[in-house]
């Protein structure tokens, strides 16, 4: 109730509320991906997570990246994952996965990492950010960065993708010949 009242009174910005909702849903969806036994539900959790992250990009004025996030991740990547699940006809994990001790250990280490990384963030007083530059995150700006500063990494990424593709073709072709 106090959140709604805060928004109405103008003490809490609507962006803050939107961020809170998106962040909570994103984390919950990520937990579903990791914890749920059915791979299809996991894939849907992944879509939800990607869409929430896209929403956070929008809040950061990075509209182009939000669009890319939806098209590439929530679109192409998850479609591919679902496709593989359907093709392989994956069943929900029969057993409960790893035992209690490894899970507890992993959770403990994860929480420790969150504590180490998160504590300084709580203390961090963000400088008052002005409005972003008018061309921030536009296609033109991203394109310019890609073909100037990040020219060589861009070349190298295409090389990496090419060898991944060659590998996929080679390995799949072998199967058919056998």
């Amino acid at each position: 109730m106090s959140l709604v009242a805060g928004v109405v009174l103008g003490a809490i910005s609507i962006q803050w509320v939107a961020f809170l909702v998106l962040a909570v849903v994103a984390i919950a969806a990520a937990l579903v991906v990791v914890l749920h036994r059915s791979p299809v539900v996991g894939a849907m959790g992944l879509v939800t997570n990607f869409l929430c992250i896209a929403g956070i990009y929008v809040l950061l004025n990075a509209y182009f990246f939000a669009a890319l996030q939806v098209i590439i991740y929530a679109g192409a990547v998850v479609v591919l994952i679902t496709f593989v699940i359907m093709l392989l006809n994956l069943q929900p994990e029969a057993k409960g996965g790893p035992g209690v001790v490894p899970v507890a250990l992993a959770a403990l280490l994860g929480l420790a990492l969150i504590a180490v990384v998160g504590r300084p963030l709580l203390e961090y007083a963000a400088p008052e950010a002005g409005p972003p530059a008018p061309d921030f995150g536009t296609v033109a700006q991203v394109g310019e960065a890609l073909f100037t500063v990040y020219f060589y990494p861009f070349l190298a990424v295409s090389l990496a993708l090419l060898s991944a593709m060659v590998g996929a073709v080679l390995l799949a072709k072998r199967r058919l010949e056998d």
Partner: peptide
């Protein structure tokens, strides 16, 4: 960034 991308080129090629 370049170090990471170079490492990926190397690693993916070696996986294949």
């Amino acid at each position: 960034v370049m170090i990471f991308v170079g490492l990926e080129v190397l690693s993916i090629t070696l996986y294949v």
